[in-house]
Write a protein that binds this DNA or RNA. Structure first.
Length: 305
DNA sequence: GTCCAGGTCGCGC
DNA sequence: GCGCGACATGGA
């Protein structure tokens, strides 16, 4: 099938666990507001331009499947040529990663029904928080959330994509998130002054260089046999990743037992649980402690006062 | 102008 | 281990 712009259009289905809430999964976290993610409200579609390992740039459109018998996500891929089997397998892999289709939240739901006095903003099948196709992209996003307003985060990620991302065919508006190689090649001066990363440019560049040169393999961070503590320490080795960013990235990696304590969380907890008085880290942690290894999600879906 | 943002680093103690 | 100033940039 051909689209208007002359691109080839390919559709596949990904099966989801049950229960599964597509819209909550796509939109419950701020990542959906960061390019090249896009939430298309009219069709309830999650879209993202992505560069496959082959170098092919594709546009992904994800929406809730309409099969009655089982729950699926309908995946539409737009690109310049038909996908190879290897590319199709990669599409399937990144869709499952973005939507966390292979994570089990049943223990979290159970805990939620057992704990008294908690009202979380949860519907059946929600609790999943959107991730990027790759951990590299998630780390850059996270670095762009430190010590800046959310509008600044949006601006920096937007500039990274617009200036350094590879376009799909001849469509300059459809750019993938830049590769480590592209960010490394840009250099710190351009990252600081043109992209507007400020002092973060050094952190972003060093990470991109380490990956581009093969000194850092982020695949090792996805190892489920690693303890969360060991993973936390490994994440902290990345320059620019402090306690907040490491806890955020643990969440990305499906480990929710650390709270990412930032000004936002401090303000929320202080208002809701301490009558507006400032609360220490210990006091903050004690609030969500009953949630054990699900603390991050308990905070994330906690209801405002 | 001044303050601070969904923090982190490197320093001195 | 803990406290402190510096850090780029833009919005309030």
């Amino acid at each position: 099938m051909k689209t208007k712009s002359g691109l080839v259009c390919h559709t596949l289905q990904e099966s989801t666990p049950l229960p599964f809430d597509f819209e909550s999964t796509a939109t419950a976290h701020g990542w959906v507001m960061l390019r090249p993610f896009e939430w298309h409200r009219a069709t309830a579609e999650l879209r993202r331009i992505h560069r496959l390992n082959s170098g092919n740039v594709i546009r992904l459109r994800l929406k809730e499947g309409n099969s009655r018998a089982s729950s699926t996500v309908q995946v539409t891929v737009e690109t310049v040529a038909a996908l190879t089997p290897i590319e199709e397998a990669e599409v399937s892999r990144i869709v499952r990663r973005m939507l966390r289709l292979d994570e089990d939240f049943n223990e979290f739901y159970q805990l939620g029904s057992q704990l008294n006095g908690w009202e979380l903003r949860l519907r059946p099948g929600s609790g999943r928080l959107l991730r990027c196709p790759t951990l590299f992209e998630d780390i850059i996003y996270t670095l762009c959330t430190t010590n800046i307003t959310w509008s600044g985060t949006i601006r920096m990620v937007d500039q990274l994509t617009a200036q350094l991302g590879e376009p799909l065919a001849d469509l300059p508006e459809w750019r993938a998130f830049p590769t480590p190689e592209a960010i490394a090649a840009a250099g710190t001066d351009k990252l600081k002054q043109v992209i507007g990363l400020g002092y973060r440019s050094t952190y972003v560049w060093e990470l991109a260089m380490a990956i581009a040169e093969g000194r850092l393999d982020l695949q090792s961070f996805e190892d489920p046999t690693l303890s969360t503590e060991a993973l936390y320490e490994s994440l902290r080795q990345i320059k620019g990743v402090g306690p907040y960013a490491a806890a955020t990235l643990l969440m990305i990696l499906g480990r929710y037992e650390y709270l990412a304590i930032d000004t936002e969380l401090r303000t929320f907890v202080s208002k809701k649980y301490f009558a507006g008085q400032p609360a220490s880290d210990t006091q903050i942690r004690s609030i969500y402690d009953p949630w054990g290894r699900w603390q991050y999600l308990a905070y994330w879906f906690d209801t405002p006062l």
